[in-house]
Nucleic acid binder design. Structure first.
Length: 959
RNA sequence: GCGGGGGUGUCCGAGUCAGGUCAAAGGAGGCAGGCUUAGGACCUGCUGCCAUAGGGCUGCGUGGGUUCAAACCCCACCUCCCGCACCA
């Protein structure tokens, strides 16, 4: 196929000439673009290609504008998925292996070697590199690396030591969903069941039992403590009495186990059945009154502490359970409870909610007709009340110091107070069961000694906001999102136990987490060229070396001596970094906004001075395949390589760019790629015929029109590219300009003019960032010197903009439109079409009014007075007055921009223009065309249409 | 729940910040014709409804408002998509 041939040809030529290898050049302004390195547990797919095509088109655009552009590339190997995948191969997971074999097309002999994660990553990296090159990305490959290379690790070590030295790293605890068998956190993708479930923090209210022990009742609504009437214990469940830290707690057996994992020391003293506790009394720590423990079979001993306090006024379950006991006193006997006392228990109303009276729980139970505590509707009732009370609830006067406050506002404060006063503690639990892939039920574990990046630090956040405010964000709407993320970000655990990556330099056994080691690596691109060329060994890359390169700190001779790197090389590296930094543009899919892209800003502000903070971020949507998310397991995985083989690189790039803009998700459909491919081929053919046939030297108004139009196109394409509106830019460059050419050629007919060649040169340039190979080929065919990739980006030539020429053509277009309209309405098959152009005096008045409207309000009587003095209006004043008032009205309704355009066009020689287009019009309508001036005496005007003519709108008569 | 982004013709999608040239760009699809041995290629025209004169009607999620004028501004509502963490 000829497309593939020219692609290969030009890729080789580019590589041979090294035109994308960018070196510092003090005479040229630099532009540094980056693309987040792809994770190498699979081949490069069209999702990557989408973002990369946008980056590349931008890079090529900037290069043609004369910037010294650096577009480097690297590969992400750090993390769990690669090791996980490799282990699955090692274990012989057939389903998984089949996907690698069939979707990724990994040959059998390679597949076997995938038991080594490094091998697997190497394989995919090699495959992906080929794909990226075939896509024609204008990358400087000398700077390539992967994230577990020892030299890169030294860089990350420097990064983390520096962060720590600056106080951005802290140690703390952190709850995770944990598999007790695998002894590791169970992320969403590792789960058999319970996707999306995260630990919930329960407040434990410590109710004192008579015998100096506590009953920690778990709740999400600690504010309801002011409405407690009793505690529920499941009489049939097993509880334990245990020493928790330095107190005696009674909890369910399960809860004791959980607490052990949450940083508490737990020593179990004895087991007991729940019924042993029922009937006893406890003390409410806020009201200090004695309340009873009642049997509650609805209490789930597996959940939280297995102890629940009862607020029947505001919790449907509590009310239902209490009602049950009150209505069935016989159940109380076996616990030695006096039914009379239980009957005396009255709900305590303590939250005022709009739309409910005193006891919301009781009301909702009635309303939904919930039968008892086992009715499934009880759950729904609970949800409704919780929501309602949280959003619009206000604490009543019996809530001591919190009275009058809204539930929403008081919650956090109250929890804090209670903890401080020793009334409350907390624990984590899962709201729904989570089961690990290994089929073990998960728990919540509080990881000790975790290392965190202090993204919560208010000063740091402020700096990041400052950085953001200086940046350009494409599209603008994404800025809001960034701001929200900056606010929302908390401590980020930056180290893990498993997976590939760089060990935490000060704490062996921990590996720097993958999102955390990928934040400032763009700086590494700037120096990796030298590292590779001079074969600099990892151990030579000391802290001092990096401090010199990135900060210019230290005495170079000393550093050279100590590190073993030549001073000249050190200087070169420093120069390289200083030249390229900061990053001018980073482009990624929107999924990275809440993590990577924001971290990217955070860490730059932490480690670099403001002049090295990133300049711009482009965000785009996530690629879908026929409207669905791409997943290997779903069988809709589309590798870049396959697409290029089928449709060619240029078609892929253009189809991707045309598929969406802004943050909308692009949708990949093969038919689109096929269509674009056809378009590109016929574009190529079109250019060939022009090159062959363009002979005429003529330059008439149509040529002027084409040139003028093209100037606008240049401006539009350039402006849209600048704003990263790649699709709009390509749409104009490919479709709109094509339509201009079509109009011109149809309108003109006959032999092609030489001017087409000149305009074509501009057109090809405008397309070159998007479809570089085919444009390069056309460029070459036009005997231009290589390469179009380095050719100068077109600039609009103000002098070629010709409002009159454009006015002429839009007149023709409007005339056609109106004629068609009449034909459609009358269903006439035209024999003869007459056009009558407006009289000179009409034009005069029209222009006068336009002119005046520029300065402000147009006064009718003022104009009339002026007109009365005009010679040539004598005898026509009445008619002129009528006309004037009509025009004044019309102009009043015309937007300013349009009025300016009309003024620029000025008085059109309408008769001439239409006369000139006669042939074209006759051909179009298959009729005889006659043009008269309204003033002509001998005009053919049987229906007296001529007098209806208006400037820019000739009258029409058809028969 | 919290946060972010949307809803435009058969479909995709521009237009909304700065209201008026907006029955609404461009593309795709459909229809008709041309070119061709043929074509999923290419070219030309049409593609909301009504209308024997360039007009009228309906129309940009729904309802209301502001205005001489609303896809665009304001209010309310409905609805869809995405992210919520230690994971790339």
């Amino acid at each position: 196929m000829f497309l593939r041939e020219i692609e290969r040809k030009w890729q080789e030529a580019w590589e041979k000439a090294g035109i994308f290898e960018a070196n510092p050049d003090s005479c040229k302004e630099k532009f540094f673009v980056t693309f987040p390195y792809p994770y190498m547990n699979g081949p490069l797919h069209v999702g990557h290609a989408f973002t990369a095509s946008r980056v590349d088109a931008y890079a090529r655009f900037k290069r043609m504008q004369g910037y010294n552009v650096l577009f480097p590339w690297a590969w992400h190997w750090t993390g769990q998925p690669l090791t996980g995948a490799s282990q699955r191969v090692a274990k012989g997971d057939e389903a998984f292996i089949r996907v690698l074999r069939e979707v990724d097309g990994v040959p059998e002999e390679e597949l076997r070697k995938f038991v080594d994660p490094n091998y697997m990553a190497t394989y995919y990296t090699n495959e992906s590199r080929i794909a990226a090159k075939r896509a024609g990305f204008s990358v400087d490959w000398r700077r390539e690396f992967n994230t577990i290379m020892p030299t890169f690790r030294k860089f990350v070590e420097w990064q983390y030591n520096s962060l720590r030295a600056k106080g951005y790293v802290t140690k703390g605890t952190h709850p995770v969903v944990w598999c007790p068998k695998c002894k590791s956190p169970t992320g969403d993708h590792d789960r058999q069941e319970g996707e999306g479930v995260t630990p919930e923090e329960y407040t434990l209210i410590k109710f004192k039992l008579e015998e100096d022990a506590y009953l920690p009742a778990a709740t999400l609504r600690p504010e309801t403590i002011y409405g407690v009437t009793n505690i529920w214990i499941n009489p049939d469940a097993t509880y334990v009495e245990a020493r928790v830290n330095d107190e005696i707690w009674i909890t369910s057996e399960k809860a004791a186990e959980k607490l052990k994992e949450q940083g508490k020391t737990v020593k179990i003293k004895r087991k007991l059945k729940g019924r042993e506790l029922v009937g006893k009394n406890f003390e409410n720590p806020v009201a200090k009154e004695k309340l009873p423990i009642l049997p509650g079979w609805f209490v789930d001993p597996k959940h939280a502490t297995g102890i629940v306090y009862s607020v029947p006024a505001h919790a449907p379950y509590d009310w239902l359970a209490l009602k049950d006991l009150q209505e069935k006193p016989e159940t109380l006997r076996e616990f030695g409870l006096d039914p009379e006392n239980v009957k005396k228990i009255k709900p305590i109303s303590m939250i005022k909610v709009e739309g409910f009276s005193e006891y919301p729980a009781i009301e909702i139970v009635k309303e939904l007709d919930v039968k008892d505590q086992y009715d499934s509707k009880a759950e729904e009732a609970t949800k409704i009340i919780y929501k309602k009370e949280f959003h619009s609830g206000v604490l009543k006067e019996n809530c001591m110091e919190y009275s009058g406050k809204t539930v929403q506002n008081v919650k956090e404060i109250l929890i804090e107070d209670f903890r401080r006063r020793g009334i409350a503690d907390f624990m984590y639990d899962l709201p729904q069961p989570v089961v690990c892939r290994c089929l073990t039920p998960c728990i919540v574990k509080v990881l000790q000694d975790q290392w965190f990046l202090k993204y919560s630090d208010p000063e740091w956040k402020e700096k990041v906001r400052e950085a953001l405010s200086r940046m350009k964000i494409y599209p603008k709407t994404a800025t809001q999102w960034f701001l929200a993320v900056i606010d929302w970000l908390k401590e980020w655990a930056c180290a893990r136990r498993t997976g590939l990556g760089t060990p935490l330099p000060w704490c062996p056994g921990w590996i720097i987490e993958t999102l955390s080691d990928s934040t400032i690596y763009m700086a590494f691109y700037t120096i990796n060229k030298q590292i590779r060329r001079h074969d600099i060994k990892p151990k030579m890359l000391t802290k001092e070396v990096f401090n010199y390169i990135f900060y210019g700190k230290g005495i170079i001779e000393k550093i050279a001596l100590k590190s073993g790197i030549d001073t000249k090389i050190l200087e070169e590296m420093r120069k390289e970094f200083s030249y390229w930094y900061p990053v001018d543009l980073r482009v990624s899919a929107k999924e990275l906004v809440p993590n990577h892209l924001t971290f990217f800003i955070f860490q730059h502000t932490a480690l670099f001075p403001p002049e090295h903070w990133p300049k711009a971020i482009g965000v785009n949507g996530m690629l879908m395949i026929k409207g669905k998310q791409m997943h290997k397991s779903k069988g809709n995985f589309v590798p870049t390589k396959t697409v290029i083989e089928e449709y060619g690189a240029d078609a892929m790039r253009c189809a991707l760019i045309l598929s969406s803009e802004g943050m909308d998700d692009p949708d990949w459909r093969n038919e689109n790629a096929r269509d674009v491919k056809n378009k590109l081929v016929s574009f190529y053919n079109f250019t060939q015929t022009i090159n062959e046939n363009a002979k005429s030297d003529e330059i008439g108004h149509l040529e002027k029109w084409l040139m003028s139009k093209l100037q606008h196109r240049i401006i539009e394409v350039t402006e849209n590219l600048e704003e990263m509106k790649m699709r709009t830019a390509l749409e104009i460059a490919l479709f709109e300009i094509w339509n201009d050419f079509r109009w011109y050629m149809n309108r003109r007919g006959g032999e092609d003019t030489k001017i087409l060649k000149d305009t074509l040169k501009i057109w090809v340039k405008l397309l070159a960032p998007f479809a570089p190979h085919i444009c390069e080929e056309i460029w070459d065919g036009m005997k231009e010197k290589p390469f179009i990739s380095l050719a100068e980006w077109p600039k609009a030539n103000e002098e070629s903009i010709n409002a009159q020429a454009e006015g002429n053509e839009s007149l023709i277009k409007e005339v056609i439109e109106d004629t068609l309209n009449i034909l459609k309405a009358t269903k006439i098959t035209p024999q003869k079409i007459c056009y009558y152009t407006a009289s000179q005096w009409k034009w005069k008045i029209y222009m006068k009014i336009l002119e005046k409207s520029r300065k402000g309000e147009v006064k009718l009587n003022e104009i009339m007075r002026e007109l009365a003095a005009e010679e040539d209006l004598r005898g026509k004043l009445k008619e002129a007055a009528k006309f004037t008032s009509k025009v004044v009205q019309e102009v009043g309704r015309t937007p300013e921009k349009r009025r300016e355009t009309l003024l620029k066009i000025g008085i059109l020689k309408e008769k001439e223009v239409i006369d000139d287009a006669k042939g074209f019009l006759a051909d179009k309508f298959k009729a005889c065309i006659i043009v008269f001036s309204e003033d002509a005496r001998d005009k053919y005007d049987p229906k007296l249409k001529a007098k209806l003519s208006v400037p820019f709108r000739p009258a029409i008569y058809i028969e």
